[in-house]
């Protein structure tokens, strides 16, 4: 009996935690008049359910463009940051070279500094470079991840030196050692970091909000926020919710594909750190 109530309590909590999702999905299928009239959906009147919000979203807003922009920026940034961080992490874990210590110290110092302090000076720099409204202003600074390098450095310390040595004897270049020996060994970490980084980029708002000023160039968070701040009568709530649902969906799908790596990676990072 006690175990029954224990589970009842747990599952009710889980249900509460999932309710906003259910509400969001329902909200996208309600017409303007039904939006607040029904808490979830007019269940017994399926005739009132509608796809008009989705149609409106794609016809009256450059939503498809925002989606493509978001996919492009997030993918480009993720590929670059994973490549650069794993290369630098490999070098720091497996080689001795000059200035290595000083480099590590400088990197560590910047890790505790919140990036917001650089926003004004970065904006001035992008202004000088003529990169306002350009994705380079988002992708290139985003390719610098001290956190990512430390993650890869820790993971690649576990690559056995004997294996690298054997590769050298067989005539592998140092670059191929990274690509063919080190990377496959840290594969689970790559999965976790890729997802984590993609999510952060997909959702990032503050810096793109400063850089992207042309509506056609917006990414999803910027586009939706601006949709929301239009006067009430211009953006029907159902349309805004449809846009929100479509913005969340890609991350959720990606998470389902990679969830094993992700949760393992998340947890191992904390337990070791």
């Amino acid at each position: 009996m006690r175990r029954f109530f224990y589970h009842l309590a747990l599952f009710s909590l889980a249900l509460i935690s999932l309710t906003p999702f259910a509400w969001l999905v329902c909200a996208t299928f309600k017409s303007k008049d039904d939006f607040f009239a029904y808490t979830f959906l007019p269940w017994n009147q399926p005739g009132r359910w509608t796809l008009s919000n989705y149609r409106f979203l794609f016809q009256h807003y450059p939503f498809a463009g925002w989606l493509i922009n978001s996919v492009f920026v997030s993918c480009a940034q993720t590929v670059i940051v994973v490549t650069l961080s794993s290369l630098a992490g490999f070098a720091l874990a497996k080689y001795e070279f000059r200035f290595k210590k000083s480099l590590l110290i400088v990197m560590l110092t910047t890790m505790l500094i919140p990036y917001q302090v650089m926003l004004p000076s970065m904006q001035l720099m992008m202004y000088r470079l003529g990169w306002i409204n350009s994705y380079a202003a988002i992708i290139l600074p985003g390719a610098v991840s001290v956190f990512g390098i430390f993650l890869f450095m820790q993971a690649m310390k576990l690559v056995p030196d004997e294996l690298l040595h054997a590769g050298r004897v067989d005539g592998c270049s140092e670059f191929r050692l990274w690509w063919e020996i080190a990377l496959p060994i840290v594969r689970p970490m790559i999965g976790a970091y890729t997802l984590l980084n993609f999510m952060a980029n997909w959702n990032s708002f503050l810096w793109p909000q400063i850089i992207l000023q042309n509506e056609r160039k917006y990414t999803l968070p910027i586009g939706l926020t601006n949709m929301m701040s239009l006067p009430e009568f211009q953006t029907p709530y159902g349309v805004l919710m449809a846009g929100t649902l479509l913005s969340i969906l890609p991350v959720v799908i990606l998470f389902f594909i990679m969830q094993r790596d992700f949760i393992a990676g998340l947890a191992s990072g904390a337990v070791k750190g």
């Binding site: 708002f205 919710m241 929100t244 991350v251 959720v252």
Partner: peptide
């Protein structure tokens, strides 16, 4: 999994 911006939009309605 939901980004801050999207959470804010959902909560502004709720």
């Amino acid at each position: 999994l939901v980004g801050n911006v999207f959470v804010a939009i959902i909560f502004s309605m709720m």
